[in-house]
C-alpha cells in the first residue's frame, strides 16, 4: 500500500480512480490476448501438430518453397518501387501547392478505400486475354495476368498508400526551413535531398516501408484474382496456405502460416532493433 501516493498524484490529473484505470487496463489486455495473441499462438500450436519433422517437411516441399520464393520476390520488387514513388508523391504533396493537389491526396488514399478484389479485377480487365491490351500482349508474348507481373501490379496497387501516408504528415510538420538553409549554403538540390530531407523523415520512411512490406507479403484478395493459383508457379504464401487448407492438409497450412506470421514478426523485430540501435537519433528527430 505504498503505491497509492503515486497513483493518487497521477489520478488527480485526469480524475479517474485507481479502480477505473485498473479496469481499463485489464479490459485492453484481455481484448488483446483474446483477439490478437491467442490466434497467433494457435497458428504456431497448430503448425507444430505433426512435430518438427512434419513442420520442416511442409516448408521444404517444392510448392511451399516456390510460394515462399514468390512472396519474397514480389515484396522485393514492389516495396522499393513503392518507396521511390511514395517519396516522390509525398514530396510533391508536402512541398508544393498546385492545382489538383487534393485530387492527388485522394488518389494516394484510393487503394485503402477500394476493395482488393476490384484492384485485381481491374488488371484482368486491362491485361486479360479479353481485356483492352490483351490481344496486343498475346501477340507480343507478354504475360501479365496469371503471371509474376500481374501479381506485382496488384501488390503495388494495394500497398501504395503505406509509404506516402506515413511521410506526408511528417514532411508537412517539419517544414522546409532546413532545406532552405542547405540551399542558401550552396548545396545542390540532390545533396539537399539526401543530406537533409531524407534523413529528416527516415523513421517515418522506415515505418512506412515495414508496413508496406508486411502487407505486400500478406496480400490475399487482389493477388488471388490475378494469380490463377497455379501451384508452384503463381501461388504466393497466402494462396498456398488456402490451397493446403482446402486439401484437408491443416498441419501444413498452419506450418506455412506460421512462417508467414514469423516473417511479419521478423519485420517487427527489425523495427524494434533499429529503434534500439538508433534510439538517440530517433529521440532527436522526434523533438525537432
Amino acid at each position: 500500500m505504498s503505491e497509492p501516493a503515486g497513483t493518487q498524484a497521477d489520478a488527480s490529473v485526469t480524475g479517474e480512480s485507481f479502480l477505473v484505470r485498473a479496469a481499463l487496463i485489464a479490459a485492453a489486455l484481455a481484448f488483446l490476448t483474446l483477439f490478437l495473441f491467442l490466434p497467433l499462438v494457435a497458428v504456431f500450436v497448430e503448425a507444430g501438430g505433426r512435430g518438427l519433422e512434419g513442420y520442416l517437411a511442409a516448408l521444404s516441399e517444392p510448392d511451399a518453397l516456390s510460394a515462399i520464393r514468390l512472396t519474397l520476390l514480389v515484396a522485393a520488387i514492389s516495396v522499393p518501387l513503392n518507396v521511390v514513388v511514395g517519396v516522390a508523391a509525398a514530396w510533391a504533396i508536402a512541398r508544393y501547392r498546385f492545382r489538383g493537389r487534393n485530387l492527388l491526396v485522394s488518389l494516394v488514399d484510393l487503394p485503402f478505400s477500394v476493395s482488393p478484389v476490384i484492384a485485381g479485377l481491374v488488371y484482368v480487365l486491362l491485361f486479360g486475354a479479353q481485356g483492352y491490351f490483351g490481344p496486343w500482349l498475346r501477340a507480343h508474348d507478354v504475360e501479365i495476368v496469371f503471371a509474376l507481373p500481374g501479381i506485382v501490379l496488384a501488390t503495388l496497387f494495394v500497398t501504395f498508400p503505406f509509404v506516402a501516408r506515413e511521410l506526408i504528415p511528417h514532411m508537412e510538420a517539419i517544414g522546409s526551413t532546413d532545406e532552405e538553409a542547405a540551399l542558401t549554403l550552396g548545396a545542390s538540390p540532390w545533396r539537399m535531398f539526401f543530406a537533409i530531407s531524407l534523413p529528416n523523415v527516415k523513421w517515418s520512411l522506415l515505418y512506412g516501408v515495414l508496413l508496406c512490406n508486411a502487407r505486400a507479403m500478406g496480400e490475399f484478395g487482389a493477388v488471388a484474382v490475378v494469380s490463377g493459383r497455379i501451384r508452384g508457379l503463381t501461388a504466393t504464401m497466402p494462396l498456398h496456405i488456402e490451397i493446403l487448407y482446402n486439401e484437408y492438409n491443416g498441419a501444413a497450412a498452419f506450418a506455412v502460416a506460421s512462417l508467414l506470421a514469423g516473417l511479419a514478426l521478423v519485420t517487427l523485430a527489425a523495427k524494434t532493433f533499429l529503434e534500439w540501435r538508433y534510439a538517440d537519433a530517433i529521440a532527436a528527430a522526434r523533438h525537432s
Binding site: 517539419i174 542547405a182 537533409i196 534523413p199 537519433a281 532527436a284 528527430a285 525537432s288
Partner: peptide
Amino acid sequence: SVRSSVRA
C-alpha cells in the same frame, strides 16, 4: 534536426 542527423 540538422544537428541530429549530423550527430547520428
